[in-house]
Amino acid sequence: MIHLGKIEKSYPLEGGRSWVLRNVDLDIADGEFVSVMGPSGAGKSSLLNVLGLMDHDWQGSYALDGVVVDKLNTKQRQALQREKIGFIFQHYHLIDDLKVWENLDLPLQYRDVPAKERAARVADLLDRFQIVGKKELYPSQLSGGQQQLVAVARAVITRPKVLLADEPTGALHSGQARIIMDLLAELHKEGMTIVQVTHNELYANEAQRIIRLRDGWIEKS
């Protein structure tokens, strides 16, 4: 599903460069669940941004589901992102002004999904995530765990092939975190490729594989 070849990313600095990712080679198979770990500043989030096509300023080669990303222009990358990628953020990043169901509806709107189908998919996910009763609430009226639940639902509503989760449990207490991890496990079981960045060894171990980063390099196991 994902093939990274010699990915390098750096920022120019006075008298040299500051390296963020160094010579990263990585293959993630279709349906694989991978955890990315490492200390602060190791390059975890940068790697996720490259994988999620939010960062285009890198060298190397990247193929996503058979599509060679480094040959694409910005528009094509955005289209590919819309088609293949779902995001979960540590701080949920729900839109405060939108109700729960509208937050779920938003990615579908951006993909020009017809209204009828959107309504069906939103209803389906609300049901599946057991948040039907919360659909008319605004994010500020939900607990952290509930907000992350909505964020996961929003990430998968477009049926992405790859789900990228940046410390999805980082802001949650253990009870809420458990629910989210169970949900990720379920999605994985259904065949979704998942890459999660986490500091939590326990949750990292729930993935099939752990990739450890240090100073931009992947540590050899």
Partner: peptide
């Protein structure tokens, strides 16, 4: 800006 970034990350085009 955070909201706009989220929208962009969720697939909002520049035009949107």
């Amino acid at each position: 800006a955070r909201e706009l970034s989220v929208r962009a990350a969720l697939g909002a085009s520049r035009r949107r």
